[in-house]
Amino acid sequence: MRRSINNSGLIASVNPESPISEVYRLLRTNIHYSSIDQALKTIMVTSSQAGEGKTTTISNLAITYAQEGRNVLLIDMDMRKPSLHRIFSQPNHHGLSTVLTGQTSVQDAIHETMINQLSLLPSGPVPVNPSDLIDSIAMREMLDQLIHQYDIILMDTPPVLAVTDSVIASTLCDGVIMVVAAGKVKKVHLKKAKEQLDHVNARMLGVVLNRINRDDQPDFYMNYYGMKG
């Protein structure tokens, strides 16, 4: 069932011709060219800590992929503090948690959104063991199934330094994007988050520097930087 979207944060849908929407499309392009030899079908977006804009970033990125004509699935893997169902005005009675615990089929848990070709798998009710569910055979089997049904799967995960969920999830993805709020995150925290991802050999695609001072960046509110080493 499609429901209306009434969220000003979805700028790529509300105002696709805006400069900010163009930056999200630039991010999409940079992700594509970060791996020419291997198609990136599962991409995780995270941050080092809460409040850096990762959910807004992944939501708008998903919209730009759908606008490109790709069949997109957005998964809310933040089963501790879910928010994507509210952003896209969808119910959350069933979702990832109920799929992984065998209460719901994945087909019944996925919702179409008002964005053509963009579907959402919400988090579902908050479980007692989110990290165990992510690190389960059921999770891997579900992704193996969905990869054949969608052109690209985008996963919104909790902050890396808050819980282990994101580090576990990174082992299931083709690539990881880290959202960093300019002027908010200390370098030591960002370094620690990257070290945790490196420890499990996560493939870092880059860093989105969010909330740049508009006086310094009059044309771009978000930039994309490659992250190496």
Score class of each variant (00 low, 15 high):
Ala62Val: 14
Thr64Ala: 11
Thr64Ser: 13
Thr64Glu: 12
Tyr65Lys: 07
Gln67Asn: 13
Glu68Gly: 03
Glu68Val: 07
Glu68Ala: 13
Glu68Met: 11
Asn71Met: 07
Asn71Thr: 12
Val72Gln: 13
Val72Trp: 10
Leu74Cys: 04
Leu74Trp: 00
Ile75Cys: 04
Asp76Gly: 06
Asp76Thr: 14
Asp78Cys: 02
Asp78Leu: 01
Asp78Tyr: 00
Met79Trp: 03
Arg80Gly: 00
Lys81Phe: 02
Lys81Gly: 00
Leu84Gln: 15
Arg86Trp: 02
Arg86Cys: 01
Ile87Asp: 00
Phe88Ala: 14
Gln90Cys: 11
Gln90Ala: 15
Gln90Val: 15
Pro91Ala: 08
Asn92Ala: 07
His93Gly: 05
His93Lys: 15
His94Ala: 05
His94Ile: 15
Gly95Leu: 12
Leu96Gln: 07
Leu96Tyr: 01
Leu96Val: 06
Ser97Arg: 09
Ser97Pro: 10
Thr98Arg: 00
Val99Tyr: 02
Val99Glu: 02
Leu100Gln: 09
Gly102Glu: 06
Gln103Phe: 09
Gln103Ile: 10
Thr104Arg: 04
Ser105Glu: 13
Val106Asn: 06
Val106Glu: 10
Val106Lys: 03
Val106Gly: 02
Gln107Cys: 04
Gln107Tyr: 14
Asp108Ile: 04
Asp108Leu: 06
Ala109Ser: 11
Ala109Gly: 06
Ile110Phe: 01
Ile110Cys: 03
His111Ala: 06
His111Cys: 04
Thr113Ser: 04
Met114Tyr: 08
Met114Gly: 03
